[in-house]
């Protein structure tokens, strides 16, 4: 029986409801030389991402402003070119994941897993981020100017995560390389089961995770912190403590060569 007020759906999805079938590119952005403005208000996720790729890969655009992202999920993913993207608003989950090269600013908030698996580039979030920010980060800088949720930088294999606010529990869980700078307080389980990498904390640590210990500060730490704060115009860095892996749980030398490569 047809439902009351049945209307023709405007977006055709696959049988599972996961993939929008129409992969045509809207080509509605306003382009001015190397700059473009994309109004996402009437577009679906697939259309927005297709439009972004078309602008950057095929139209030679190097600076895109996306209006009305409306907290939709998975926007700005898999952009594999040097460019600048500015989202005027908030993003949902998995925003700007799998990128390689872009420098992205998000003026609002983001859901979980922002910049997950970033290979290179810069992602700046002007407000808060959900859990799993920078999950499996491989390289580049993720800057969150507010608070971050739980398991920030889980499985991080490179790059730098900076949070000006607080971080929730299990920050740096299973971290393997890279750096985190948390300026505020962190919840319990900091650096739990980390293999390597460095976590700097400015506030209180609720509890250290398994095999996470306080490390000795040296000149390279000062150089890193001052450089990153200057690059991102974050002002004067707070006094920070350094946390590293105690190396009681894991030893890379005993791993198979193929496993060693996974973290390089």
């Amino acid at each position: 029986m047809d439902p009351v007020n049945a209307e023709e759906p405007t977006v055709r999805m696959d049988e599972r409801g996961l993939v929008e079938l129409d992969d045509s590119i809207p080509k509605t952005s306003k382009i001015d030389g190397e700059r473009a403005e994309l109004d996402a208000r009437e577009m679906t996720t697939r259309k927005i991402n297709a439009e972004l790729r078309w602008l950057i890969y095929e139209q030679g655009v190097r600076d895109v402003t996306v209006l009305n992202p409306s907290a939709r999920h998975s926007l700005g993913t898999a952009i594999l070119a040097r460019c600048r993207i500015r989202f005027e608003g908030s993003l949902g989950y998995f925003g700007c994941g799998l990128i390689d090269g872009p420098e992205i600013v998000i003026t609002g908030r983001v859901g979980w897993s922002v910049a997950e698996n970033m290979m290179s580039g810069v992602v700046v979030v002007e407000h808060n981020a959900g859990s799993l920010a920078g999950a499996a980060l491989r390289g580049g800088d993720l800057v969150v100017k507010g608070d971050v949720g739980a398991r920030t930088g889980i499985d991080q294999k490179g790059g730098t995560i900076i949070a000006l606010g607080n971080a929730a529990s299990m920050t740096g869980f299973m971290m393997q390389r890279g750096r985190q700078i948390i300026c505020g307080d962190v919840g319990p389980g900091l650096g739990d089961s980390m293999y390597d990498g460095t976590i700097y904390v400015g506030g209180e640590v609720a509890a250290l995770g398994i095999d996470c210990i306080e490390g000795e500060w040296d000149d390279s730490d000062t150089e890193l912190i001052e450089r990153k704060f200057a690059n991102h115009e974050l002002g004067k860095p707070p006094d920070l403590r350094k946390f590293v892996c105690g190396k009681k749980l894991y030893n890379y030398d005993s791993l198979e060569p193929s496993e060693r490569k996974l973290v390089l």
């Binding site: 290179s120 491989r138 390289g139 580049g140 790059g159 490569k261």
Partner: peptide
């Protein structure tokens, strides 16, 4: 050659060794 104002992702790239020969890893 890299995004941002410093070496960005290349900061994590270091000289390593492969079978006794200096080598760099191509991810």
């Amino acid at each position: 050659a890299t995004p941002g104002k410093d070496l960005n992702w290349l900061e994590d790239v270091e000289l390593l060794e492969e079978e006794g020969t200096p080598a760099v890893f191509d991810r």
